[in-house]
Design a protein around this nucleic acid. Structure first.
Lengths: 152, 152
DNA sequence: CCCAACTAGATGTATATACAACTTAATGAT
DNA sequence: ATCATTAAGTTGTATATACATCTAGTTGGG
């Protein structure tokens, strides 16, 4: 009560604080499940996107994931090092394409049970309404980018 | 089509990739609006939580925001340095309480127009259904923690 | 043909985040 | 009272993230 009404409103209604809190919660649940595999959900998401949408350029992948190309550049270094992704020559000497290797695909298949368990926990924790709404909104974002080029 | 069904499912249904994508989107929109003020949404969220729920201990604040205490420890250093938060002695010699200073509250009031504009953009971008679902889910999380102790 | 403008990726720097380990203080069992 | 255990914060280390800048390659105007 001691704070101004505007500040109270910022606390009560802020979309960002909620989105960011949920992000920490979800990332934490996934990373905990993945810990035995020595990988985090950020990398798994990227690998999964490449496996399903690749081969594609880093720029296109960054657009799909709404990620900075510079961020992706460093994440890719780790996936390349692990042998889960390989680069192919691009149309252009500046560019290249990213593709999941058989080892990368096998890794994803291997963690499917862990992924599945995490999904279950998350739907329970977040509620099906929220999960459905997120799916719809993100699908719209992907549809806007270029119809038919779904990502992760 | 060339990837196994399990890997396709992981791409199509994953809650984490969506949550994390939305987090990047929302954080980016807010940080862009806050750039002239030399602060990011992470710090604003913390300050706002302290202004509304404080004085409270770092441990309690971390619980409200679903944040690691170690993360908070470093974020607090910046808020203390800016003079937006002050520490008060705690019940215990190990602990202390965080409270927003008048300057901190004034800063929050000052950015209200920018916050408000960002909210408008975000509701438009995410859709009212998703925003409502996030609000409901996070309110439930806060209610579970300790009835009456709402946070950010 | 040549150079300006642009594009793709990589690198410099800073913040946000978390886990593990550490320090200091409190508590409890005997 | 003493010491093991627990609790609160901080610090070490690593990843994720973004903006600004840099390098290299491409392209278009003249």
């Amino acid at each position: 009560m001691s704070v101004p009404a505007k500040v109270r409103q910022m606390a009560r209604e802020c979309v960002a604080v909620r989105t960011r809190l949920l992000n920490r919660l979800v990332t934490g649940v996934c990373d905990a499940g993945l810990r035995p595999y020595g990988v985090r959900v950020a990398q798994v998401n990227i690998l999964c996107a490449i496996a399903n949408s690749g081969p594609l350029t880093p720029t296109d992948l960054a657009a799909v994931l709404v990620l900075e190309k510079s961020t992706l550049s460093r994440d890719m270094a780790k996936l390349l090092e692990k042998g889960w992704v390989e680069t192919q020559p691009g149309d252009d000497a500046r560019s290249h394409r990213l593709a999941a290797t058989p080892a990368g695909v096998a890794f994803l298949e291997g963690i499917h049970p862990v992924w599945s368990e995490a999904q279950k926990q998350l739907v329970k924790r977040l509620g099906p309404v929220l999960v459905a709404a997120m799916t719809e909104t993100v699908d719209e974002i992907w549809a806007e980018q270029s119809p038919g080029e779904q990502g992760a």
